[in-house]
């Protein structure tokens, strides 16, 4: 296996010695089946995990690019639902896509959507739970699916334009996206930077008052909390003893 394994991913390596067709003949095309299985199956996993990147660059280019990626960054775990965390960093340095600088952040959004899809279930608090007398010192626990992805590019508009039939063409500048999972389907939605600061502070376990301070004065607090409640993202309000 010490010969077999590296030759699976590196087509420049020779076929490992000691292999045959069981009748004393060569095993070259036979070994090539395994080589092909490995790269094609991992490329398929990438296509499943990054459908918007695939749509943006096209199937042929995506498969060629993913082939480079999977050889350079093969999975370290059999749980392929988590595979591809290194893809945004790869896209930032992969020369052939240097003219598409938004790809890396779109890939980060797709990773966040996938993580939200597989995140633990959690029951939301009742809408009136925020009317808590000690809310300011409480910690608001957010659902495990909750993610924030910020980008200098309009990544939500790009995502919509490539997943929804009637979406407008993507334009505009920086977008910060909140990913939630109200039921089973992850739901991305652009939010204001101040709202993102609040949510990130809550995710970092700050008490509500400190999270508000981190958010800054320009936050639309009512809209932000309504969004979190509507998306079933607040799962507990914990008050210190």
């Amino acid at each position: 296996m010490s010969d077999f394994a590296p030759a699976l991913l590196d087509p420049t390596l020779a076929i490992p010695p000691g292999l045959s067709d069981a009748r004393g003949g060569p095993a070259d095309r036979r070994f090539a089946v395994y080589r092909n299985n490995v790269v094609v199956s991992l490329t398929d996993a990438m296509a499943t995990g990054f459908p918007v990147i695939l749509k943006l660059v096209g199937d042929e280019f995506f498969r060629a690019m993913a082939g480079v990626f999977v050889r350079a960054h093969p999975p370290d775990s059999p749980v392929l639902a988590r595979y591809g965390a290194a893809f945004p960093g790869f896209l930032e340095t992969f020369e052939p896509v240097a003219q598409l600088p938004y790809l890396a952040d779109v890939a980060r959004l797709e990773l966040a959507m996938r993580a939200a899809y597989h995140a633990a279930d959690a029951a939301p608090v009742a809408p009136d739970a925020l009317a808590h007398p000690r809310l300011m010192e409480a910690r608001l626990r957010l659902a495990p699916a909750t993610r924030v992805v910020a980008s200098p590019y309009p990544i939500h508009a790009i995502w919509r334009a490539n997943t929804e039939a009637d979406a407008p063409p993507a334009q505009g500048g920086a977008e910060t996206v909140l990913v939630t999972r109200p039921d089973w389907d992850p739901w991305p939605r652009p939010i204001a930077p101040a709202a993102a600061r609040l949510i990130l502070a809550l995710l970092a376990d700050l008490p509500f008052a400190a999270a508000l301070e981190a958010a800054g004065d320009d936050i639309d607090l009512a809209a932000t909390l309504t969004l979190l409640l509507d998306t079933k993202s607040i799962i507990a309000i914990e008050v210190p003893e």
């Binding site: 010490s2 077999f4 394994a5 490995v38 093969p74 999975p75 370290d76 392929l80």
Partner: peptide, 10 residues
């Protein structure tokens, strides 16, 4: 093998 998962039955 060696910390890499090949996603095939080898």
């Amino acid at each position: 093998h060696g910390g890499t998962f090949f996603n095939d039955l080898l």
